[in-house]
Design a protein around this nucleic acid. Sequence first.
DNA 1: CTGAAAGCGCTAACAC
DNA 2: GTGTTAGCGCTTTCAG
Lengths: 360, 360
Amino acid sequence: MSHTDPPPGRRRGAARPQAAGAEGGRASARSSGSVTLDDVARLAGVSPITVSRVLNRPELVTADTIEVVREAIARTGYVPNLLAGGLASRRSRLVAALVPTISHSIFAEAIEALTDRLGEAGYQVLLGLSGYPAAREDDLLAAILSRRPDGILLTGINHSPETRRRLLAAKIPVVETWDLTPTPIDLLIGFSHEKVGRAVADHLVGKGYRRFGLVGASDERALKRRKGFVAALAAHGITEVESSSVPAPGSLRQGREALARILDGGFRPDAVFCSSDAMAHGVLTEAQARGLSVPGDLAVLGFGNLDFSAHTHPALSTVGIDRQAIGRHAAEAMLARIEGETVAEPVIDVGFTLIERAST
Amino acid sequence: MSHTDPPPGRRRGAARPQAAGAEGGRASARSSGSVTLDDVARLAGVSPITVSRVLNRPELVTADTIEVVREAIARTGYVPNLLAGGLASRRSRLVAALVPTISHSIFAEAIEALTDRLGEAGYQVLLGLSGYPAAREDDLLAAILSRRPDGILLTGINHSPETRRRLLAAKIPVVETWDLTPTPIDLLIGFSHEKVGRAVADHLVGKGYRRFGLVGASDERALKRRKGFVAALAAHGITEVESSSVPAPGSLRQGREALARILDGGFRPDAVFCSSDAMAHGVLTEAQARGLSVPGDLAVLGFGNLDFSAHTHPALSTVGIDRQAIGRHAAEAMLARIEGETVAEPVIDVGFTLIERAST
DNA sequence: CTGAAAGCGCTAACAC
DNA sequence: GTGTTAGCGCTTTCAG
């Protein structure tokens, strides 16, 4: 508003070119090149902190000053150094995301949604791939925490005591995802895998299926779905379940092989529940290769709702999960926490949808 | 935790517990909590720089000292602050990767390979999703450069002048990927999309196909493949090519719709080349839905070599790309550059493989 | 092999 | 509104 005492005068050299002058007078163009805040400040004829404000809290600066500074920034091609900024402010504007893999599109889409939302808020995502089973989650976490992320997203709810300790010590918001538990570390966005298993079982039994096959990856969440599935079947008096496990995350090929194993074993299921759509697709392929009609001879149910399952075969049903919702909610919850706001829903059950494609 | 002055002892105590002593004597446990290098040094009875050396250049330190320091680190639960370390050393140990999306597994797998290899070397990956078409690659890049990455991976070879300028100014190794050009910014790992198009055309023509359909996403690389495809066909005297474009990256559904559009338009191709396996899968599905035999009535060729294409249908041929090789090579090249070594092969053509599944 | 001094580039508090 | 003064936590010289 007010053109204070020494009005920058809108372009044109600042009154006091260098103030300090003597005293140390560290040369500007050090050596390493990179333009610094000081260089910009000097060119604009303002103090460094003013440049910083123009960048981070422009509402505290006069429109005139902003313009002069912006001009100087453009002229110099200045790129802020967030390592320095983060160190000084203790806010890295970085969020870490630990997932087993991103080749499995179920995680990839959630990460994308997370990245998009956080990006809008000025945050970036540091990717940590822990592999299956969360091999060195501990080491990975240590490496990641040294970047001082402002928040962290984890996959699953089972973490080593060491991991939990470090997470707590870091004092940053933690979002566990893809599962539910009564004892989350902090925030939680997921759904009940056991319920998924039960819902699928009830559904299939209701449709008249009686002999079940289970093709599952061996990760903890797939095991929970299996548990729910088997339990619900037992409640219906069905105990005839033939299962075949493969290493997570499970591929189409493994799905094929798994069904082959079951069939070659002499068991003849009338329905198969798979731990991913890729595997369901494999089962479907193997079934067709063997001349089995789907869902006539064999019903196939996947998990994850990949795009292709929606079009590949009218008989390929699946359990739909809103992957993007998980990423979005995780981002929102984390941002709220970081900003010090109260998180409306620290725990969110995003649920699931049974998508039935077979008209049988 | 705070055995202050009296050195922890425990196999030999340090001679001079605190040297400086007077002079400033800033309290250790500031407030914000986080254990610092100084805390560890104090506990171990050594100077901060020694702790730093134990962590970064242990070969310069005595085995005894290392042990004492390691002990102190474990005791305090110290986690290095890489923001500070990066600022001081001018090496962030961070590498940025810009890709359009990771939901498309072709990129996801390359990123995984990159992350794995870089992780071994102590680097982490900052993920940047630019979207299709590289919407705000410029802004994204600016945001990313403020983290002072030690290297950066880009997707494609077409970048705005502004992007190139910034990249050059950053003075860090740049790896362009997924394509080839005689004028790379720095390092380059890819293959010729035009050659892919030509190879596919020659292959199909050689097999006797004459009426071609093209189902492609509209990204620059898919356009190059199309160009090569059309050019090679022209060389064979074939000009009858009906194409249908969709927004990148292209989904299975879009593949279905694209073929539907072509067929409904009255054109009856005997072979269709798609810009991704997902789309090829869609085309295949639509063909089957319409009662067309594949490859009897219609040959379908994809691109990318996704897992499912290998098993879905014996007629679904594809162009195989070694996705992991791209990530691996990118990591190696970048590491070499960062370490100041000479990069053996600044430009690598990883080639492609025509994977034929149809026995027709 | 170990240490002291001096920042890396930026921002939090306070002054003015 | 804008400037001054101190560091944030670590590593870089350069001494011993």
